[in-house]
Simulated scan of single mutants.
Amino acid sequence: MKAVRLHNYHEQPVIEEVEQPTVSGPLDVVVKIGGAGVCRTDLHVIEEQWAEKSGVQLPYTIGHENAGWVHEVGSAVTNVAVGDTVILHPTPTCELCHACRAGDDMHCADRRFPGIDSDGGMAEYLLTSARACIKLDPGTRPDDVAALADAGITAYHAVRKAAPQLPPGTVCVVNGAGGLGHIGIQTLAAMSATTSVVVDRSAEALELAGELGADHTVLADGDHVQTVLDLTGGNGAEVVLDFVAEQGAQQDAFAMTRQGGSHYVIGYGSNIDVPTIDIISTERNVIGNLVGTYNDLVELMVLAEAGKVTLHTKKYPLSKALEALADLDAGRVRGRAILVPDNA
């Protein structure tokens, strides 16, 4: 089968023929990929940012946002059958450790993360686990929902955590309206009555944000922090959802957070440099956010199938994977890039 494989860090992946995966364990599931999301994390993988944390051995297949159709199942699989349309939670888990029992399965003690620490889904087929599979309506197109498997639940997970802080009369800043941010805008509208303020350096992204229901849009032109402060009476927002968190955006996000408010760090790539006295004197919180749980993805798919969350995508054939990665890196993708295998 064809797969997008990373052979060396700081070099582009290659598209090559590799052996198709098969079932070996009782809970194994092989999925025929119908759509694979292209994520900024894929760029960070290539840049070696994940090498130490993942411990992955090169070469391997990247891609961690995957949906498709069940192709083969192990002997103990009962929740899906061959032919079912599925979206895959990005971390197949053990379901037995304390984190899994607590519903905090992205912190499973024995998890895998295909596309990060093992072969991922930028390929024609992917080996996963029954525990990662969520069965979808047969009419759902995998290439329409694939990016919800990571970008979607990452945004949803952050909004779900922040929602109790966002009753009517509050303000939430969405910092970045790209692949994750445009999903965050929609989930925010579905789960709270807060006033949303979307900040982005792209006028096109802000136009999309307005179409998706943002109450205010602010161009990141150097004066955006002051503009947000002006919109909030000089106080800042109760919550800032930072979907960028690099190139200075992470500092802006903290500056846009009011006293007693919370800065949710969702994007990554740079350090946050905040004097500790600024944290204690204002009691502002900095909260990390790692993907989301299996249940988060189940709930998000309910919103998606109800039409309350829609992915804006740009689709590429698998053979154009390098073009998709380059377009993402250059900011040419509106919403989310999706790879579609030629045989899907």
Results as ranks from 00 to 15, higher is better:
A3L: 01
V4N: 09
R5Y: 12
N8M: 11
H10Y: 09
P13K: 15
V14T: 15
E16Y: 06
V23T: 04
G25V: 13
P26H: 04
V31D: 06
G34Y: 11
R40A: 07
T41L: 09
L43D: 07
H44M: 13
V45D: 09
I46W: 12
E48M: 15
Q49I: 08
A51V: 06
S54D: 10
V56G: 08
P59S: 14
T61A: 01
A67M: 13
A67F: 14
H71C: 03
H71F: 13
S75T: 15
A81K: 15
G83T: 05
D84E: 06
V86R: 03
T91P: 14
C94A: 09
C97R: 09
H98S: 15
C100K: 10
C100Q: 14
H107G: 07
A109N: 04
F113S: 10
E124Y: 10
R131C: 04
A132Q: 09
L136T: 12
D137T: 14
P138S: 04
T140F: 08
R141M: 10
A146M: 08
A147E: 06
A151V: 10
A151L: 12
G152H: 10
I153L: 15
H157V: 00
R160P: 11
R160F: 09
P167A: 09
G169L: 13
C172R: 02
V173H: 08
V174Q: 01
G184N: 01
Q186M: 05
Q186D: 07
Q186A: 05
T195H: 01
V197Y: 01
V199K: 13
S202G: 04
A205F: 00
L206G: 01
L208A: 15
V218L: 06
V228N: 00
L229E: 01
G233K: 03
G236I: 07
E238G: 00
V239R: 00
V239C: 03
D252A: 00
N271K: 11
T276Y: 01
I277K: 11
T293P: 11
Y294R: 05
E299I: 04
E299S: 11
L300D: 01
E305V: 07
G307P: 06
K315S: 13
S319C: 09
L322K: 10
E323C: 12
A330G: 13
A337V: 02
I338T: 12
V340N: 06
P341I: 10
P341F: 06
N343H: 12
